[in-house]
Write a protein that binds this DNA or RNA. Sequence first.
DNA 1: CTGTTAGCGCCTTCAA
DNA 2: TTGAAGGCGCTAACAG
Lengths: 339, 339
Amino acid sequence: MASLKDIAKRAELSINTVSRAIRGIGYVSEDARKKVMRIAVELGYRPNRAARSLRFRKNFEIAVISFLGTNNRSGDQLMMEKFVGIKRRLAASGYEMNLHFLDIDNDSELANLKILEDITGQSPAGIIIIGDSELYKSIYRLMEAKKIPAVLISYDVIPDMDCVYIDRQQGVRDAVHYLAEKGRNKIAFAGFDGICCNRIRGYRKAIEELGLQEIIFSENNYSGSDLERIFDLGFAMSKTIAGAKIPPDAVIAYSDYLAAGLIAGFRESNVKIPEAIAVIGFDNRELATFTNPGLTTIAQPNFRAGELAAEMLLDKITQANEQPNAVGVPMNLKIRSST
Amino acid sequence: MASLKDIAKRAELSINTVSRAIRGIGYVSEDARKKVMRIAVELGYRPNRAARSLRFRKNFEIAVISFLGTNNRSGDQLMMEKFVGIKRRLAASGYEMNLHFLDIDNDSELANLKILEDITGQSPAGIIIIGDSELYKSIYRLMEAKKIPAVLISYDVIPDMDCVYIDRQQGVRDAVHYLAEKGRNKIAFAGFDGICCNRIRGYRKAIEELGLQEIIFSENNYSGSDLERIFDLGFAMSKTIAGAKIPPDAVIAYSDYLAAGLIAGFRESNVKIPEAIAVIGFDNRELATFTNPGLTTIAQPNFRAGELAAEMLLDKITQANEQPNAVGVPMNLKIRSST
DNA sequence: CTGTTAGCGCCTTCAA
DNA sequence: TTGAAGGCGCTAACAG
């Protein structure tokens, strides 16, 4: 690869002048500037990242940390688009993206500790943490302590932390309003106790705004993330819902997996979708394409969230510290035939 | 971060002696070695990658290039595990993984050219190319021309190129044998013309080994990768299969999407699965968990393929050039209720 | 406006 | 067995 030295030789100028010309900093005569730029293009000059890193004592790398599900691969689809969003934005500013996968399945604290040491050992320019459970928040604090700028991609505002949050509350709220506009007035929410507070909040907010009655179906005895199990729960729940004293005419499910179970169950019970009951899922996973009927679902703006997180992090790296900042990204309803 | 200089100061030795001690190269007295190692651990020393890159005029980075489906996200699940396999193996050897996404949906040649220039501009130590279509082969050749060691992750042996191939032929062959062992003797293959040669080859091989009759259902008018469309094709194909003069008692589908369509179609026609007909899919995508009955499928060993590709590339980087090498990774049957 | 000098952390060469 | 010198490509400080 061509270096500043190569350009300098050809242009018969000093390395330093060439450097200034290329960076557009300090005094350079117009003649010299033009000459340098021309040769730089000819030689396909690109600044050497290693040299810059060494000089600035700082890696132009952004670490991205996300979980890895080897048993439960449900995260893959949603994660990949976030990666791409991050990558695109960083590339535009000359930063590299460096992925790290936490092994949450095996819950190997030792392995995860090693990964965190790897990350801090690289002294990245910043880090994007995908997730907002306690584990991720603790990583955020660790990075803050090590003076590594960090940004979370979360699902809600996280107090005292910089985050880009995918606005689940607004997503569910919008979905309820959409159903109401379609003439539904007995709109239910189906989920699990405890683990869906931001979704439930959106549901309650909309129900209140619309003056409707709250109808919540909740499975209390669930924990874990076995996808088939969730599907089966939805299947079972559909019977409860169809058999309720006043059956709802619409239901928003905690996840696409649960919604797929509901749909399968309703079909088996000959409850017509969407005529008798409309069904809405959550996340827009691939599965939503294949239910029968196709599942209307609240889609994650993954690509956009990735872009914004990268943007926020780059700002944080260059700007003086300001107050922690939370930027919401709206979720969008992906409409199919189930509503 | 602690540098060699810091250790040298504490140990009252020269930087050079410390360097040799840590690398375990050249003469170092036992005393000096022990002292250096102790301090290195104390200080949490890690070699500075930027400095090493500068010195060696070589980045300790492996570029990984894969496609990105913004419209068709079907690749995500299979890709992610490959990334993880690659990452794990590289991390163990002190290399970084640098992901690049080709935008094949928009087929933006300009954007893709820019990505390739980015990659070559970084002078990575090597590159892993995920895919074996003409585009990827041409990238391989480009890298070879630029003296960047490359390895493909492919689905078949690629002549004259280093590759780790996921052995589709063996996967389908094994599946046919498995069906035969379960007592099936009218085993069909369902797919598309032209685009499934390695799978078909495996099918034919097994059918011949078993002395069975070849039964192939093929859709000729298909091109593209719209997943719902493939599902619908499978649905329609199920009618053809069920209505054949001598209906098969087992069918291996080109993909899980096609298999899911087949299953839905058979159910609608009251063809019992697996009693009347066993169904096997291909790739073990998330969808396979949710068909009813659950889909037995030929699973991609993604993680292992990633690991092996990284391994092969690291060898290629350090060893003298040898003959192009092809390593097969066997596919495994993931058995569920459809067989 | 331009050039020289020094140094980021590491490794190779050569001298002690 | 150890150390000193030099340079990878870049930039900041300073001198011309």
